[in-house]
Design a binder for these strands. Structure first.
Lengths: 267, 267
DNA sequence: CAGTGGTCTAGACCACCAA
DNA sequence: TGGTGGTCTAGACCACTGC
């Protein structure tokens, strides 16, 4: 194990073949000590990424994992605590710990921050406008950590609330993980697109970064959203990441904010 | 204590006079069980709110608190863990646990999400345009949990980056906590406004909610930000809260997003 | 060196759930 | 009833800070 020798009475040190290597770099600072629970967390994360447990599955109990990794339950618990805090996993007392999924009712549309100014959310009508294979432009490639001209899938869709087109989204997905994505499959699917990505391509979006601006509607966006050219619109550039911070989606959204607003919590 | 009797060998149960009352309401559900560490968290929170420890101060060590509340260090630790996760408190190994403050370099401008599209943040030039005592309109009163016509302080200011006016903010503050706030005091202060509120009025903002829209510049905002009327601007309505979710500020911001964007992280 | 937070363990018991 | 996560304790040792 990394940490030399703790554990008071008797503890068979054994598992975890790879103790963290000390970062003997240029500086003498940063001894690069990694606590046990962090190493456990990384191991669990890797199992998640490799699909050993899929979204919605139960993962082994804390006792089982403690046995597998040869550490105490408390250490596993702390590792899972952090994974739960990152929304990668969901604990349910009496039942077990589950791999988080965008398909769950309560978590659903977690990344959609637009909501009506008044009243409760209503279901969105979705229409896929377009779905085609293209080559990545320079900036799309950069944002998705690809090379220019690499194959990507481009999707354009419109979301409407109560018949009112409100959101226009242009989506770029890396070609190889999303091989075989078609307009028909996208159109026939109910439920959140991210849940569809999980079940069909094994790609789980874990977190995202957004950049938001106010811009005037261009001719194209004005037409698709049914506003006059020049109408103020919210533009949202989102990059979504899977496990280990690998970018897997670029999404440029254009939102009408006449009847809706983007909500955010600061802390 | 609430929980009947745990603690294996010997533990003098003693402190914490107020065990949580069971919510014997209409339904038989929700036994309203509150774990010990939650009760400790509430006690610490109350001490923070009452100013027993002020922003920047060290709070007593985990051992001290464990003694004071007659619980184990682990229980205090879990309470403080949650307070740290909420950014109410900052832990520093070897030194102690400190009350979080907006005055800290690293935490500074935690609520300002606008940043330049390229390059690093530069210092903002601030100008207080106006500061006056007014009576709360109906909607201002509602958002601040006041009554209509209650006294409030109104502040208007403009932030500029590299000489370019970029942010216009209208701020409403409840009258009594902010008694004595003047344009002069605000203008002469360096540093974040929220740090000023902490040191001068003992009001610490701990979290906030924002509603964001894209709108066209009105005549007034256009003039103050130096854009043409009709120019698209980001509007941000923020409500900030102190401890225990008491609203203490309403802020309506108008941002130019030509060279800047509002950043957000989803998870 | 002493004091603080940070890690790790072991064990007991509680609350919740499903069979 | 047995299994799972949740709480609580006690004690040992580590890492960091400052005197």
């Amino acid at each position: 194990m990394n940490t030399s020798s703790q554990t008071p009475p008797s503890t068979s040190d054994g598992g975890l073949t790879a103790p963290v290597v000390a970062a003997s770099g240029l500086t003498l600072a940063t001894p690069a000590f990694s606590p046990l629970y962090q190493q456990i967390k990384t191991l669990i994360l890797t199992s998640l990424q490799e699909g050993e447990w899929k979204p919605g599955d139960v993962i082994p109990s804390e006792q089982d994992l403690a046995g597998r990794y040869r550490v105490s339950q408390g250490t596993v618990r702390k590792a899972i605590d952090e994974l739960a805090a990152d929304n990668l996993v969901v604990r349910r007392q009496g039942k077990g710990t589950f791999v988080a999924t965008h398909a769950e009712r309560h978590i659903q549309y977690r990344f959609l921050r637009l909501q009506p100014d008044t009243g409760e959310e209503v279901r969105a009508e979705r229409k896929i406008v377009e779905c085609k294979r293209v080559r990545a432009s320079a900036d799309v490639a950069r944002l998705l950590s690809l090379r220019s001209a690499d194959p990507v899938v481009f999707v354009r869709r419109v979301l409407a609330f109560q018949g009112q087109p409100t959101i226009l989204e242009d989506i770029w997905l890396p070609g190889s993980p999303f091989k075989g994505l078609t307009l028909e499959a996208l159109s026939s699917d109910q439920g959140p697109m991210y849940a569809f990505f999980e079940s069909e391509f094994g790609v789980r979006m874990v977190r995202a970064k957004e950049k938001i601006k106010a811009e005037s509607a261009s001719g194209e966006s004005a037409a698709l959203l049914g506003v006059a050219s020049g109408h103020p619109l919210l533009t949202v550039e989102r990059i979504s990441y899977t496990y280990h911070d690998v970018p897997m989606e670029l999404r440029r959204g254009t939102y009408r904010t006449d009847q809706h607003h983007y909500r955010n919590e600061l802390s």
